[in-house]
Amino acid sequence: MLKTLTRVGTQAFNKNLFSFSRNYCTRYTTDHEWVNNIGPKKYKLGITDFAQKQMGDIVYIELPKIGDSFEKGGEMGTIESVKAVSEYYIPIDGKITSANDKITEEPEILNEDPYGEGWLVEFESDQSGDFSELMSKDQYDKYIKDQN
């Protein structure tokens, strides 16, 4: 039901739901991406709040093309801040179904709302097993704490 709601919900509703859904179907990578399971075989990906804070003001984002396929660990694009450039990776095999063109026009959205409007791509994947092996919220929080 959660998945159905996400698909049909308005944006505002989506936002409200987000904090709820995050606890259940969002996973995190050691490269500081978040991945959200938004439907059967469907995933949405962005970078974490920790990552955007580390990078500072983001000024340029390179997105993959719709239809691009990547193997697990593949580099999908780059994010540049005033003083840094960083790649972001797909954590499981997947094919791009949507890319957030709005953030290429207004990269600061990624700083302002990394888990919401600042998402990067949506992709399809058969590798739900690999997805569930990614870090949970608690594991990720511990991971960034250990890094500091």
């Binding site: 050691t30 490269d31 500081h32 970078i47 920790f50 990552a51 580390q54 990078m55 994010i79 801040s81 003083k83 840094a84 450039v85 960083s86 790649e87 972001y88 990776y89 890094q147």
Partner: peptide
């Protein structure tokens, strides 16, 4: 990867 890269590039 992000954080490691950032530190490198900022430096």
């Amino acid at each position: 990867m992000i954080s490691q890269n950032i530190i490198k590039i900022v430096q």
